[in-house]
Write a protein that binds this DNA or RNA. Structure first.
Length: 503
DNA sequence: TCGACTGTCCCTGTACACGT
DNA sequence: ACGTGTACAGGGACAGTCGA
């Protein structure tokens, strides 16, 4: 099979299978090298390709001699044949195939005898002062960039496959090869974008710190802050004045009516990630609490994208009628759910006390958020008159004073789930009493929104499986049996210890 | 009287799952 | 890869209590 190496470009001639170096594989191998090793390879390739200006005579180091001597006769012919085409990097022509071949040669050499020798014992192959001005330094910059990119990919692969981290670097080449063939997803490319429960404490803290930094950077770049209304598509872009250095600069204008992939949005994401990455990888400017947690610029881009999505959502809720309505509904639902959780937490707080009174019967397992009474502040209707009439009923049921009514005191209406049996209702009632008693004994009483019970109930079965003793028989027979709801809930095989049929 | 502390309620932002 | 729906943690606002 003959195919061209994409890295060598269109001008590349056909090459034999032996010379066919997979781009990714090659870059991966190159990434394993130290800067000195790369420097050696580039120098060798340049010399063999005839593009390298010979440096002034310098004492030949043992290792550079070894590098040279390690090239077998056949490969030397290739290197010197001049048939391989070059790739132009910043005005300097260097043959990547030559580099790759030189690398293959070096990679099979015994450790310590070639390029694999420890960095500390190696000297630069040419006078370092020459590198500063020579074209090689430009190539080095290019290669350095590629190395950084490959480091990101390598780290991502490690984090995606397991949590062993750097230990994988010690694995043999066989395992590495297996890993390389693994399919990559975008998620796996981001160290800090893996599921947060797979991160350790330091990584989580660093993640939060970086997220905050990226967000602040984006706020500065766009002028968008939490308190202000989000700018619309036609809002003029104001000039930003930095009072500390009188630097007048134009704010970057986000397009919140467009996707995060929109060119302007993308530019903001890239810029914010770049600025934070530069700052937080700079030894002097780095402010992160944990100095050794690794992260990539891709992580920061991912965070920046999430920030922009969040703004976009807010913008749409403010400006799109249908989406705004949905957002309001969701907020209402969240609020109700939150109250159920509060109720659960309050009952959980006295569960131990309950168990002490009832021979160790622990009611904690009966406290699912989903099983708690709902508390709603208004009727779900768009009819204002109906709403007001319902409020009046609540106000009366809660026995509000005239003053409280005038102040618009909010009353929460209890909506009891109909599935609950008398026994479980009794347990909840006792827990609530214990809670009230506990608070009374502490001598502290706090203002709470008044509650009203107008007798409304919820027929829907809960999503969480029920214990048999919790189910009200009449509810099942009247509302569930024989209906489509019958398949919508599940009853556990037996009651918990201390309750129902398991006293 | 005032500041510190605490409980309650709710908003906001983040994380995750899922569909496209 | 992206948008969307949803759950939930964190923290702010507010109000009541307590002790100096």
């Amino acid at each position: 099979m003959v195919r061209s190496n994409p890295l060598l470009g269109a001008s590349s001639t056909s090459i034999t299978p032996a010379q066919d170096i997979n781009h990714t594989q090659l870059m991966f191998q190159l990434s394993q090298l130290s800067p000195e090793q790369l420097q050696g390879l580039i120098t060798m390739a340049a010399i063999r390709g005839g593009t390298h200006q010979p440096p002034p005579p310098v004492p030949q180091e043992p290792n550079t001699q070894l590098q040279h001597s390690m090239i077998p006769e056949g490969n030397r012919n290739v290197l010197t044949s001049g048939q391989a085409r070059g790739t132009r990097f910043s005005g300097f022509e260097v043959d990547l195939r030559l580099i790759s071949e030189a690398h293959i040669v070096s990679s099979v050499a015994p450790p310590g005898t070639s390029l694999n020798a420890p960095t500390s014992r190696r000297e630069p192959p040419i006078d370092p002062s020459l590198l500063e001005t020579s074209e090689i330094s430009l190539v080095m910059a290019e290669v350095k960039g590629l190395r950084a990119e490959l480091e990101e990919l390598k780290r991502a692969r490690h984090s995606a496959s397991d949590d062993d981290g750097d230990a994988d670097d010690e694995n043999d080449g066989r395992q590495r090869k297996r890993k390389r063939t693994k399919r990559r997803s975008l998620r796996s490319e981001h160290i800090l974008s893996v599921k947060t429960d797979r991160l350790n404490r330091e990584q989580k803290e660093t993640r939060n710190e970086l997220h905050g930094m990226v967000k602040r950077e984006m706020e500065e770049l766009t002028g968008i802050t939490k308190k202000e209304a989000l700018p619309g598509p036609t809002t003029p872009v104001p000039a930003h004045t930095d009072e500390t250095n009188s630097d007048h600069r134009q704010l970057m204008h986000s397009k919140l009516d467009r996707d995060v992939t929109d060119a302007k949005n993308k530019a903001i994401i890239m810029r914010a990630a770049e600025l934070v990455f530069k700052e937080q990888t700079d030894g002097d400017l780095r402010k992160l609490k944990h100095k050794d947690v690794k992260f990539t610029e891709a992580d920061l881009r991912s965070f920046a994208t999430a920030v922009l999505r969040s703004w976009k959502r807010r913008f749409e809720a403010e400006n799109n009628g249908e989406k705004g309505r949905k957002a309001k509904l969701q907020a209402q639902k969240n609020k109700r759910h939150q109250r159920q959780r509060t109720l659960k937490a309050a009952r959980l707080a006295v569960a131990e006390l309950y168990a002490e009174i009832h021979d160790g019967a622990d009611p904690s397992c009966l406290l699912e958020t989903d099983w708690m009474t709902e508390e709603v502040s208004s009727l779900d209707t768009s009819d204002d008159e109906e709403k007001e009439a319902h409020r009046q009923k609540m106000v009366q049921a809660a026995r509000l004073t005239e003053k409280e009514i005038e102040c618009g005191t909010v009353v929460l209406e209890k909506i009891k789930p109909l599935f609950r049996s008398d026994e479980v209702d009794g347990i909840y009632e006792e827990l609530d009493q214990l809670g009230r008693k506990k608070q009374k004994e502490s001598g502290k009483t706090y203002a709470r929104k008044p509650r009203a019970d107008l007798g409304r109930t919820r027929v829907q079965p809960p999503a969480v499986s029920l214990y048999p003793f919790m189910v009200r028989e009449s509810w099942f027979e009247d509302h569930i049996a024989g209906t489509s709801l019958e398949d919508n809930f599940e009853v556990l095989p037996e009651d918990p210890e201390g309750f129902g049929s398991n006293p």
